[in-house]
Simulated assay, not measured.
Amino acid sequence: MKQKELQIGNLTLRRPIFQGGMGVGVSLGGLAGAVAAAGGAGAISAAQIGFREPDFDTNTVEANLRAMGKELQKARGRAEGGVVGFNIMVAMQHYADYVKQAVKLGADFIVSGAGLPVDLPEYAAGSNVKLAPIVSTEKSAGVILKYWARKFERVPDFLVIEGPKAGGHLGFTGEQLTSFDEAAYGEEVKRIIAKVREYEARFQKKIPVVLGGGISGMEKAARAFALGADAIQAATRFVTTEECDADPRYKQAYLDAREEDILLIKSPVGLPGRAIRNVFADRVMSGERIAPERCRGCIKGCRPTEIPYCITEALIRAVKGDRENGLLFCGADAWKAERIETVQQVVDDLLG
């Protein structure tokens, strides 16, 4: 299977693959730059991206905005002329500020999920940055396409579909995730793509569709293209690479994971997520409350005095290498990882 290059406006992907955004700190400039250098699109996660900045605890937003610039510059240095952008969650506090910073910095694209990015075009108005919502169902795709068309007289530059086998926060209920039927979801993907094609015809503009979620090998990548996707998105496969920005102990947790170690855990804001079982996950699943050390204002709607744990603290502990006391988000096939690879090897394995 040798897939042709993908054109998104003035952006050219030599290989039709997007690297999924992984926060906190898993997909920064190192990984994103390597994927871009391999011909794909590298995504830097903006989620608490400034966690290594000296003033992160006291000046969180400014630290994050500053780090966005540093990481984009790092990625550009690795992949001159490559395609690099940001993954910015709608659920983040100060969402508009992060979008505007990405625009100011000259990112190639912004991918936005964890909520519907209804106002993304407003925050990026007047720029050439390519905008893409993340959706999981035909209903959510229809809502965002209709809203952008009516309010902004535009459509997404591309659209990302994340299926039930993706990692991190998921756009499904716990029941939907436990009763997942791959064939049935394949039909849902076809309906989403058909909806996108309606708006393509209406606006006379190609809207590439990127499909992600559990794409861990060439066979699953081929199925995504057979369903009608123009490109694939992979995240978990890129964790166990030399270029991934996470601590080596984080990567080793993926290599050591067994299939039965992959579980669903509830985020502090109520969304289900997929993670690797460890001491932290067992404590949370047992109903224990792990009181936050401090609030850094990461997610809208979070109530620090009521949440079972602080997701910022849990993710930072993990990415720094504390594999037992941190939250190890992952995709459904994380247990299949057997060795540390290079980004180029992963791209070639998935796309041929």
Rank of each mutant, 00 (worst) to 15 (best):
residue 221 A to E: 06
residue 225 F to I: 08
residue 240 T to H: 03
residue 209 V to W: 02
residue 195 K to M: 13
residue 223 R to M: 10
residue 183 A to R: 13
residue 197 R to C: 05
residue 195 K to Y: 05
residue 167 G to E: 06
residue 189 V to M: 07
residue 216 S to G: 10
residue 246 A to Q: 04
residue 197 R to G: 05
residue 194 A to W: 07
residue 240 T to F: 03
residue 207 I to V: 14
residue 184 A to S: 14
residue 162 E to L: 15
residue 209 V to K: 00
residue 237 R to C: 10
residue 210 V to F: 03
residue 217 G to R: 12
residue 224 A to C: 14
residue 177 L to H: 07
residue 237 R to G: 07
residue 193 I to T: 11
residue 193 I to F: 13
residue 229 A to E: 09
residue 185 Y to Q: 12
residue 187 E to S: 13
residue 177 L to V: 06
residue 169 H to M: 13
residue 219 E to Q: 15
residue 163 G to F: 04
residue 244 C to H: 00
residue 178 T to P: 02
residue 214 G to Q: 04
residue 194 A to N: 12
residue 169 H to G: 13
residue 250 Y to F: 15
residue 212 G to A: 14
residue 163 G to R: 04
residue 192 I to R: 11
residue 236 T to D: 02
residue 210 V to R: 01
residue 162 E to H: 07
residue 166 A to T: 03
residue 194 A to P: 03
residue 198 E to F: 06
residue 238 F to H: 01
residue 249 R to E: 15
residue 251 K to H: 10
residue 203 F to N: 03
residue 170 L to F: 10
residue 179 S to R: 14
residue 169 H to P: 09
residue 247 D to C: 13
residue 222 A to R: 14
residue 251 K to R: 13
residue 168 G to D: 11
residue 233 Q to Y: 02
residue 175 E to S: 14
residue 185 Y to M: 08
residue 219 E to G: 02
residue 217 G to S: 13
residue 219 E to C: 00
residue 166 A to C: 15
residue 196 V to E: 01
residue 204 Q to P: 00
residue 190 K to L: 13
residue 201 A to P: 00
residue 216 S to V: 11
residue 178 T to C: 09
residue 212 G to I: 04
residue 224 A to Q: 09
residue 239 V to W: 02
residue 186 G to N: 07
residue 224 A to W: 01
residue 192 I to S: 12
residue 247 D to T: 05
residue 164 P to Y: 12
residue 242 E to Y: 10
residue 243 E to F: 10
residue 225 F to L: 10
residue 221 A to W: 05
residue 234 A to N: 04
residue 166 A to F: 00
residue 191 R to T: 12
residue 223 R to H: 13
residue 224 A to F: 06
residue 215 I to T: 01
residue 245 D to E: 07
residue 206 K to V: 08
residue 236 T to F: 01
residue 181 D to P: 02
residue 213 G to R: 00
residue 188 E to I: 12
residue 179 S to A: 14
residue 234 A to I: 01
residue 186 G to T: 08
residue 232 I to V: 15
residue 245 D to R: 06
residue 207 I to K: 03
residue 200 E to G: 06
residue 203 F to P: 04
residue 243 E to L: 10
residue 216 S to N: 11
residue 244 C to G: 03
residue 236 T to R: 01
residue 232 I to L: 06
residue 199 Y to Q: 03
residue 209 V to H: 01
